[in-house]
Design a binder for these strands. Structure first.
Length: 270
DNA sequence: AAATTCTCCTGAAGGC
DNA sequence: TGCCTTCAGGAGAATT
């Protein structure tokens, strides 16, 4: 499931090929993604040069001269760069066509999105409300502390709220809270400045480690016909309910917060 | 405003 | 083997 690291590794993988190249169009085999893929996508993209590929939260942004292609991988999406003559398989819904390759979106669950906009991105409804980038300089202890002020909801839910902090998905939220030794149920407003600072360090470390792990498996991205990223990241708590904590004598617990599974060690995380 | 619930979808896993 | 049911999750939309 693509979280920030997977999206960023994808971006790194495709950027060397895509940057500076002209799109020839798009092939849409199934428009039914999270929002319908525009009928005129191919016509909108034809002839446009991709100047840069950026990431904002979990959105991939292809900057063209007078517009932006917005791609989201949803829950199960992946992008692969393939020779143009590779036949599409099941769930290969959209191809972004370049001169000698296609960028192919594979997304079984169809929670992803492919949109074209000529609006300034800072005004776009999907981008406008996004919160702070967790790997940015401005995401520090003071910023997180300010962000949690007055919030009665749990810190786990705050980490998952893209209007406040982007990109930290369910897995990395649990992992980061474990690293920081913070109980995921702690009301956000109860976190001290020191604990916020500790949590910020844990989040950055968790995300950077995952990006590094994914990046190393993607050296061959352009020629790969496998899904991107074999993240070697070994989960400390995620998915380990009932198993032994790796740090103490405790047992990892699973709870549900905001209809999402959370894993933590009650002994290590207070 | 903040918080919670609902919703989209398919594949995997578990039960019988 | 096969047919259920349940669960997983990103995040906008709807509701409380």
């Amino acid at each position: 499931m693509p979280e920030l690291p997977e999206v960023d590794v994808t971006r790194q993988g495709i950027a060397p090929y895509v940057t500076g190249r002209a799109l020839h169009g798009a092939i849409v085999r199934d428009r039914r993604l999270r929002w319908p893929v525009p009928h005129e996508l191919g016509a909108s993209l034809a002839g446009r040069v991709v100047r840069a590929v950026r990431r904002r939260g979990k959105y991939l942004l292809f900057d063209c001269d007078d517009g932006h292609l917005i791609v989201h991988l949803g829950m199960s999406g992946s992008l692969r760069l393939l020779p143009r003559d590779v036949p599409p398989g099941k769930h290969d819904h959209v191809d972004l066509v370049f001169a000698d390759r296609v960028l192919r979106l594979h997304d079984p669950r169809r929670f992803g999105a492919v949109l074209w906009t000529q609006q300034p991105l800072e005004a776009h409804p999907l981008i406008r409300h996004l919160g702070v980038e967790p790997l940015s300089r401005s995401f520090n202890g003071a910023r997180l502390h300010a962000l949690t002020q007055g919030l009665r909801t749990s810190i786990k839910n705050v980490l998952m709220d893209a209007r406040r902090i982007v990109g930290v998905g369910n897995i990395y939220a649990s992992e980061s809270l474990f690293l920081a030794g913070i109980n995921p149920r702690t009301p956000a407003r109860r976190l001290s400045h020191a604990r916020c600072a500790r949590l910020v360090v844990a989040i950055k470390h968790t995300l950077r480690t995952a990006i590094r792990a994914g990046g190393s498996s993607l050296r061959d991205f352009v020629h790969s016909d496998g899904a991107p990223g074999h993240f070697q990241l070994r989960a400390r708590v995620y998915g380990r309910a009932g198993e032994a904590c790796r740090r103490c004598e405790g047992t990892v617990r699973r709870i549900v917060q905001g209809q999402r599974a959370t894993f933590y060690c009650p002994r290590c995380q207070r």
